[in-house]
Design a protein around this nucleic acid. Structure first.
Lengths: 337, 337
DNA sequence: CTGTTAGCGCGTTCAT
DNA sequence: ATGAACGCGCTAACAG
């Protein structure tokens, strides 16, 4: 080391002393804000570099009245562990992390078990972040709507709530359901089922769109099978259901993971996919291509969704009253249908 | 509202004014630290509740000289996007989030593109977190070792580096490789291959263990196929490789995702798994059970791993010189072998 | 162009 | 048992 044994530089004041200037000069040099002699600035920057000094972000943010962080909250209301077992969410997290990092923001990730209905207000009031992104509204629609009424920088991923809920970004699940319906009808499938948890708004909308997209004479041919959406639980449900003798020829699954469970369970019963049974999923997770048979699915573009979420949030942080965004889903035909 | 129109309480001082006491009294009441009259404390707490006032965590941490947050860093050195496409990491993130939340810590998630070799030092010096967990050392072993020499609260998930690298938690990949080898040998497989990116230490160790676990006469029968480990890229590699006429009868894949790619590619060539070809993966991700055929794999217990990571980190934050932990992997036999 | 000063919201002596 | 005063590390007026 080439400092005079004074130990590591703890603060701007230490560096100022070392450079023989005032703290504000150091601040100006390091932040790049404010007018400063070119030479002084470079000298101080070099000194900071040499000593490995970096501004303390926490103090900086306190002074600036901001936190420099955005929270990603995942309520696990309907099924503990569900969401985080789904590859869909990791993909989303990755894109969010990138988008936030690009803007110089930190990302605070928190799973939340909404045992009380003030979890969101409580979090917001700690002031730990400048904004909140909620991934998956689960069964917490009311809580979200209430918080959104008072707290602007809040954005939700999922199905758009009727009335004035929070600003939402999500796929058009109704349209996605319709696409699935038309595809199965085109394939000549007539004994249909929907597999999923319609207590979750996204899934309920997919189911509703599915019914809406079917010719009227097929409506009564649709069985709604209420099922959790984790790999283990959905496979168990499917096994029981096939085991009870149910023999549909077309199933729309609430997610790709559920679709994979259905294929596994069906084949254990000797049903062949797609010969005996067409299966169509939702999401188009990266592994959908690798499923055997490769999954026909309704694709939602996660990257686009993540960018909309971040964009919307920062516009609201900036005071703009930006509203919800819907993303058009797309049918991807592979071999499971 | 029942306050006198004074607007929202911004700080402890506002509340003190409202309660007719000093700021330090409010601080004592809300933190629970320090002696205080029972009545006063309850009165102030009630007032805070009623006005929705919460202590500002950032200021609190600044004052206490801590941040209350831990960083989860994911270097993407060898293949941008690789890790985050792997379900393994989300599962890990979920458990980490739970463990940190339990300790009252926030989790700061950041993907990092290690284009320069000072990314870790730079991050550490910002002082944004009290500790750092690095998930997957990628090809950044040297950077990690250097940082670990000066910065104690650093813990890494992955293969333990030879010599004095950073404190590491990870599966015993060598042992895992041996398990895979013995299993394939037991099945009578003799034309063997390893699929994966041996530039990543974890995968290199799995490969080494694989060779070490084989009877000597089979060593030369092992082909090393260098392959990226994302779903798309690994399937493409596998397709080309089978397409070139390669016909192994047993493959050890670096991860479950790679194993699923191999099955997909093999079947496109008319190879039947496991009749013509045994395939064994690594990780036991939740979807491994749902693969067709269900995946034989080497299981690493992610939940246990996450707990060790957090435990180790906090012991090091506390000044303890706690060392690395290895987790025993386990063979899970399903139907792909 | 640079230095002095006053906080950002809180916890903690040291008094009383 | 409570209050006054100081400082955590930083930025932004305001002077000079």
């Amino acid at each position: 080391m080439d400092d005079q044994g004074s130990g590591p530089l703890k603060s701007i004041a230490d560096l100022a002393r070392l450079a023989g200037v005032s703290v504000s000069t150091v601040s100006r040099a390091l932040t790049g804000k404010g007018a400063l002699n070119r030479g002084t600035r470079e000298r101080i920057q070099a000194l900071a570099d040499r000593h490995g000094f970096r501004l303390n972000v926490a103090a900086q943010n306190l002074r600036l009245g901001r936190t420099g962080a955005v929270a990603i909250l995942m309520p696990l209301g309907h099924a503990r562990g569900q969401q985080l077992s789904d590859p869909f969410f990791l993909t989303m997290l990755g894109y969010l992390a990138d988008a936030l990092t690009d803007r110089g923001y930190d990302m605070l990730l928190s799973r939340v078990l909404p045992d009380r209905d003030d979890w969101l207000d409580t979090f917001i009031r700690t002031g730990r972040t400048d904004g909140v992104i909620v991934i998956g509204q689960s069964d917490q629609g009311a809580v979200l709507a209430r918080a959104a009424a008072r707290y602007r920088p809040l954005v939700v991923w999922g199905e758009q709530a009727p009335g004035d809920g929070p600003a939402t970004v999500g796929a058009d699940n109704i349209a996605g359901g319709r696409l699935a319906a038309q595809h199965l009808a085109d394939r000549g499938r007539r004994r249909l089922a929907f597999f999923g948890d319609v207590g979750v708004p996204e899934f309920a909308a997919r189911h509703a769109g599915f019914l809406a997209g079917l010719p009227p004479e097929l409506h009564d041919a649709v069985t709604l099978v209420s099922s959790p959406v984790t790999p283990e639980a959905s496979e168990a449900t499917a096994r029981d259901w096939f085991g009870a003798g149910n023999r549909p020829d077309g199933i729309f699954a609430a997610s790709d993971v559920v679709a994979m469970s259905l294929i596994a369970a069906a084949e254990q019963q000797g049903l062949r996919v797609p010969r005996d049974l067409s299966i169509i999923g939702f999401d188009d997770i990266p592994l959908a291509r690798l499923a055997r048979p490769p999954l026909t699915t309704i694709r939602q573009d996660i990257e686009v969704g993540a960018h909309h979420l971040v964009d919307l949030l920062f516009r609201r942080i900036g005071g703009e009253d930006a509203g919800s965004v819907q993303i058009a889903p797309e049918l991807v035909v592979r071999e499971s249908s």
